[in-house]
Design a protein around this nucleic acid. Structure first.
Lengths: 230, 230
DNA sequence: ACAAAAGTGTTAGGCCTACACCCATGA
DNA sequence: TCATGGGTGTAGGCCTAACACTTTTGT
């Protein structure tokens, strides 16, 4: 039975969303990929994504997928580009609205399809299905641009984090090394960090000071214009 | 005769591109709008745009529309967001991939539909059809963000321009006033301006120095990273 | 000569950068 | 006590922002 029930005067493309899900393990930026179980590109790794339903917006679609993959709801999900090359999908004309999401790895407890999903470090990413290599590269560039102007790094870190962790994150994303003292000064001067309770860890070295991101201070700061620079 | 020839198993949205076309008249930022001749929103102003063909990419679609509206080919056209609200079009589900284009007003010699197209200053823009108000607002924000980091202003000015014109442009886009001396110094120090031949105008005041944008110097500069700040 | 806009230089303060030593902790 | 990483301050240079007078030119 051929159920081609939805008919139009002109051909319509299919619309999907794909999501580049970023995490941070304290040292490296991670990206969540899914191994495809069906053709085309069966067995290849790909970005999580899927078809947009006719009664949901692309944002809703992207959030739905994010939740399905990571179990997370309230994370930061941002549309960044729509890919429309005519032959990007071998089956039919498909355009994809691409998003990136920033998630706290510490809060991700395996998605439903954990068996087929895996976190990759930036440098270990295999060649991907469709044009997902290109999508991923553009997402990384956006992430780099954006982190210079908005403190999105805090979306990737646990609620409570240390200054060295924060510095590692910036260095991992931007691919550069900063002077520790200068980084401390700059971050503290921004005034968007609050010291958190000191917790004693059992490591063979000095316990670093814990901070949390102060969203109220950040909102104030944003009002009157500011910039984060590196 | 009901020509519903293209059939699918699941419903597919229509896909359009809409383009916010920016120009600059020497004093104010201008936007090209079209008066709709058909329902829905007949008689309302809207962004130029139209349906994406099944064998063209969104970029091609946006460029095609730009040419149809302004007669310009090689201008800077940039995708910035895809709008997907479920009810943004009263007829059917339509998503639109939005672009902005920067054109040199001096080179626009009326589009094909000149009768229905008109340039509006930012503050005179009427309420628009569909969600085009929102699209336009986002385009303006992107323009503001981008002009701080790339010298896209030169896309809006004639080949040869004066420093006061350039300053007016920045002031118009960013909505602020700059100190003339500081603006001169900053711009000249960047090294991306070349003095052009001095032409004698017949105005009742001093003739300003003419400059052109030096794309080679800019390319060099971009290599080793830089920033334009205001 | 006047009106109108163009052009020009200096100074003070803040920000960025580079740089080296001590501290806390567990083993 | 040692090894490891955490934490801290200062000095020089550069960029930014604030500021006023002179020049050109047509009327």
């Amino acid at each position: 039975m051929n159920e081609q029930k939805f008919c139009y005067k002109y051909p319509h493309p299919s619309v999907t969303t794909d999501c580049v899900i970023f995490g941070f393990d304290g040292v490296r930026i991670k990206v969540l990929l899914i191994e495809r179980g069906v053709e085309p590109y069966k067995g290849k790794w790909a970005l999580p994504g899927g078809f947009m339903k006719i009664d949901e917006s692309a944002d809703e679609c992207a959030r739905r997928e994010l939740e399905e993959e990571t179990g997370l709801k309230a994370a930061s999900v941002e549309q960044f580009h729509t890919f429309t090359d005519v032959n990007r999908d071998p089956r039919e004309r498909v355009i994809t609205i691409a998003y990136y999401a920033l998630v706290k790895l510490s809060e991700v407890h395996g998605g439903d399809d954990a068996s087929k999903a895996q976190w990759f470090s930036e440098e270990d990413i295999p060649s991907l299905a469709f044009d997902h290599d290109r999508i991923l590269r553009m997402a990384l560039n956006r992430l780099k641009e954006r982190i210079c102007f908005e403190p999105i790094g805090f979306e990737l870190l646990p609620e409570v984090f240390t200054m060295p962790e924060l510095q590692n994150l910036y260095e991992a994303i931007l691919g550069v090394k900063f002077d520790r003292r200068n980084f401390y000064n700059k971050m503290l001067k921004l005034g968007i960090l609050t010291e958190a309770e000191q917790r004693l860890a059992t490591t063979p070295r000095r316990t670093p000071t814990k901070y949390r991101f102060n969203a109220e201070k950040y909102a104030e700061l944003k009002q009157k214009g500011f910039r984060l620079e590196f």
